[in-house]
């Protein structure tokens, strides 16, 4: 018997659905992360209302330090850094959401098919995954952007493809873990077809780790997008992006050291929020049993 008995809970049906949410909410830092991300999304959506200046307007002295007029100073063209940061959040969030969608959209079906059907489907899918894994994420994105050409959509595709292997691997492992469980056999024994079994019985039971991976991928995408922008291959100018601002800042390290500080802090805050959400989800999915759950992708040393 188990050392820690799990008593039958007798919560009514309505409240039960909230149990996972409550477990998530019990982790204070997860709530902080969720709140931070919500705030960021709101700021990005309401950028025209929130930003004090037009992000493209070159109406200040160049490379000013923080002051009353320009809270965070101005860049080399005299544009307001705070306003550019606020608009830049859009680029990061779009890249994050898009890359996670692409990664999950390709990776999850691939992993599900590979894990459930096995045999040659598995072999083919896994070699494909091995191949994608063999190219470090940032290099893959670089090459893909060269092939596909620049642009916001291609950028998302390039980052998202890099996230496919992890989604596929994860889904496959989870699928393998439950493929031969009795309730899957039971579904087949009831006469359910293979697609029906995969979609209705297997998929909902492997969603937990996938949801967490979505968050992990989003935070990876934020960093990779910034890295690409830093190399000059990210969100095309003049649209502001945090990575692009860091690239500019690097050229003016001696004149304006504070410039390089703020876009980086935005990146840190975003990744931090996503990481906290990921940990909270982990607790919610694992039923709070694990004191230190974790999943990490090596975003690579970009």
């Amino acid at each position: 018997m188990s050392a820690a008995p799990n008593p039958p809970t007798s919560a009514p049906a309505g409240r039960r659905r909230l149990a996972a949410l409550r477990r998530f909410a019990r982790s204070r830092s997860a709530v902080v992360g969720a709140a931070g991300l919500l705030l960021l999304v709101a700021v990005a959506l309401l950028a025209p209302l929130v930003a004090p200046f037009d992000p493209a307007a070159q109406d200040g002295e160049p490379l000013l330090g923080p002051s009353g007029a320009h809270l965070l100073g101005t860049d080399q063209l005299g544009r307001d850094i705070l306003s550019r940061l606020i608009y830049g959040a859009r680029a990061s969030l779009i890249a994050a959401a898009g890359a996670a969608a692409v990664g999950a959209g390709i990776g999850v079906p691939l992993g599900l098919l590979a894990g459930y059907l096995g045999r040659w489907v598995d072999a083919v899918a896994m070699r494909l995954v091995d191949l994608l894994l063999a190219v470090p994420g940032i290099l893959l994105a670089l090459v893909m952007i060269v092939v596909l050409g620049p642009g916001r959509f291609n950028l998302i595709l390039a980052i998202g493809i890099g996230a496919v292997p992890e989604f596929a691997r994860l889904t496959r492992v989870a699928t393998l873990g439950i493929r031969d469980r009795d309730f899957v056999l039971a579904a087949r024994g009831m006469g359910a077809s293979t697609p029906d079994t995969m979609l209705r019985t297997v998929l909902p039971n492997v969603l937990g780790p996938i949801v967490i991976q979505v968050v992990v991928t989003a935070s990876m995408a934020v960093v990779v997008e910034a890295g690409l922008a830093f190399l000059g291959l990210g969100t095309p100018p003049p649209a502001p992006s945090w990575g692009g601002m860091l690239q500019d800042a690097r050229s003016y390290l001696y004149q304006s050291p504070s410039y390089g500080l703020f876009p980086g802090l935005c990146l840190v805050a975003t990744v931090f929020c996503l990481d906290r959400i990921g940990r909270g989800l982990q607790l919610a999915v694992s039923g709070g049993s694990q004191h230190l759950g974790t999943r990490v992708t090596s975003g690579g040393a970009v």
Binding site: V223, A226, G227, F230, L246, A249, R250, L253, Y254, P257, G260, L261, P263, G264, L267, V268, A269, V271, F272, D275, V296, A301, V302
Partner: peptide, 29 residues
Amino acid sequence: LTAGLAVPTFWLGLLLIIVLAVQLQWLPA
């Protein structure tokens, strides 16, 4: 661990340059 995961590598590199190379001039940029 939380900080290490949240700080992008290349920005940390920039910070190290700003502090150790530009400001303190201990190491080459």
